[in-house]
């Protein structure tokens, strides 16, 4: 791999930006095009790029199997947990506005603001969860397919 010096350098340089961009996409998912899925794909792609450039072993030291497994689960748990939190707060499943709790009760701008905020935060949570899952699943799939080829 040492001969691919250009690739390594360039990758080193752009990977942080790719990842930053993915975070941007996730963060703006609620009001503009983009969201958890797209952001997750971009993030996953950045890792895949890293692995392509630096090789499987190096990749696995950075992103271990345990980590991807955890991320797989945690993403979904985040999603489902937020939904469940809404239920616990007395709403329907995924009824984010209920997350505002007592602050969202009554009338007036304060309450409205709280509801608004709760709604957005709820969606952020969901987006982040989805992002984590998509990214980790992409990484897992990549590693798994790459592994299989190594075996043969």
């Amino acid at each position: 791999m040492s001969e691919h010096i250009v690739i390594k350098r360039v990758s080193n340089f752009i990977i942080p930006f790719i990842q930053l961009f993915s975070l941007y996409v996730i963060a703006h998912g609620d009001i503009s095009p983009g969201g958890g899925f797209q952001g997750g794909v971009i993030f996953g792609a950045s890792i895949i790029l890293y692995v392509i450039a630096f090789g499987m072993k190096d990749g696995r030291t950075r992103i271990s199997e345990i980590l991807t497994d955890f991320m797989n689960s945690i993403g979904v748990l985040l999603f489902a947990g937020i939904g469940l939190a809404c239920v616990i707060m007395g709403g329907a499943y995924l009824e984010y506005t209920k997350l505002a709790g007592s602050a969202g009760e009554g009338h007036g701008s304060h309450a409205e603001h709280a509801l608004h905020l709760a709604g957005h935060l709820g969606i952020y949570g969901i987006e982040i969860g989805i992002g984590i899952v998509v990214a980790s699943v992409m990484i897992t799939i990549f590693f798994e397919t790459a592994n299989t080829q190594d075996d043969d």
Binding site: N72, I74, V76, L77, A80, G81, Y93
Partner: peptide, 13 residues
């Protein structure tokens, strides 16, 4: 639905 789903995700952890 959610409880088996959550459990499904917790299981590998």
């Amino acid at each position: 639905i959610v409880i088996p789903l959550l459990a499904a995700m917790l299981a590998p952890i």
